[in-house]
C-alpha cells in the first residue's frame, strides 16, 4: 500500500502539470487570492505551454551536447593515450564546480550576445561537470577481473570499451546526467535575464510587476518538471543497475 503512494503521487503531479500547461485558465481561482485586484493571476504575456517546451528544449540540447562531450572526454583521459591528462582533468572538474552558473551565464554574453546562445553555453559548461565526473568515476572503478577477462577473451580495445566498459558504466553515467538535468532546469530560468525564452520569463515578469502568482506558477512548473525528470531518470538508472547486478 505504502510502496504505491509515491508512484500515485507522481502520476497525479504529471496529470496536474499537463492540465495546467494545457489550460492554465481553469486554475485561475486557485491563484487569484495571491494577486491584487485587477492583476492577472495567470501569465498573460505568452503561452505557458510553449515556454515550458522551449525551456525543455534548451535543457535537452545543452544536456545532450554536454553528455556527448563529457563522455568522450572521460573516455579519452582513461585511454592509455590520455592518461597524462587524467589527474589534471580531475582537478579541472573540481575547479570548474566552483564557477557559479550565473557567472558562467554572464561571462558567456560578451562572447555570443544575448538570447538562447549564452544560456545554452552556460548550461552546457555547467552540465559537463557532473557527467564527466561520474563517467570518469565509473570508467576508473570497473572491476579489474572483468576488464582482464575481456582482454583475455580477445576483445580489441574498442570492443572492450563498447561492449564492456561503457555498458557497465551506464548506470553511473545516467546518474550524472540526472544531476546535470536538474541543475540545468533551474539554471535555465536565469537564462531569461539574458533574454532566453524559458520559464524564467514568467518568474521575472512576476518579480518586476510584484505578481506573486506569476512567480509561483513559474517556479512550480520548473520544480514539477525537475521532480518528474529526476524520478524518471532514477528509474532508468535503477533498471540498468539491477541488470548489471550492482544494485
Amino acid at each position: 500500500m505504502r510502496a504505491w503512494a509515491p508512484t500515485i503521487l507522481r502520476g497525479l503531479l504529471l496529470v496536474v502539470l499537463i492540465a495546467f500547461l494545457l489550460s492554465p485558465g481553469s486554475f485561475e481561482p486557485l491563484l487569484k487570492p495571491l494577486v491584487q485586484q485587477n492583476a492577472p493571476a495567470i501569465y498573460n504575456q505568452g503561452s505557458l505551454l510553449s515556454l515550458a517546451l522551449l525551456h525543455l528544449r534548451t535543457v535537452f540540447i545543452a544536456t545532450l551536447a554536454a553528455t556527448i562531450i563529457a563522455v568522450l572526454l572521460a573516455i579519452l583521459v582513461t585511454r592509455p593515450f590520455g592518461t597524462e591528462f587524467l589527474a589534471l582533468s580531475r582537478s579541472l572538474v573540481n575547479i570548474g564546480q566552483t564557477f557559479p552558473p550565473v557567472a558562467v551565464l554572464a561571462l558567456a554574453v560578451p562572447a555570443v550576445g544575448f538570447g538562447e546562445k549564452p544560456t545554452l553555453i552556460a548550461l552546457f559548461l555547467y552540465g559537463l561537470l557532473p557527467i564527466f565526473e561520474n563517467t570518469l568515476t565509473a570508467l576508473t572503478n570497473l572491476p579489474r577481473s572483468v576488464i582482464e577477462a575481456a582482454r583475455g577473451a580477445g576483445m580489441t580495445n574498442f570492443q572492450r570499451l563498447m561492449q564492456i566498459e561503457l555498458p557497465l558504466s551506464l548506470p553511473v553515467i545516467v546518474a550524472g546526467i540526472r544531476l546535470s538535468v536538474v541543475i540545468s532546469l533551474a539554471t535555465a530560468t536565469i537564462g531569461s535575464t539574458v533574454a532566453a525564452k524559458t520559464l524564467g520569463e514568467v518568474i521575472i515578469a512576476g518579480l518586476q510587476s510584484n505578481n506573486l502568482a506569476f512567480v509561483l506558477q513559474g517556479g512550480l512548473i520548473v520544480g514539477a518538471l525537475a521532480v518528474l525528470i529526476y524520478d524518471g531518470l532514477s528509474a532508468i538508472e535503477g533498471m540498468l543497475a539491477r541488470r548489471t547486478g550492482s544494485a
Binding site: S145, V146, A150, R151, G152, G154, L168
Partner: peptide
C-alpha cells in the same frame, strides 16, 4: 586475435555482470 584462440580463466571468474 591470438587471445581469441586461447582460453583464459581467472580467479574470481571475471564474468561480465551485464
Amino acid at each position: 586475435e591470438l587471445r581469441r584462440r586461447i582460453g583464459y580463466a581467472i580467479q574470481g571468474h571475471g564474468l561480465f555482470p551485464h
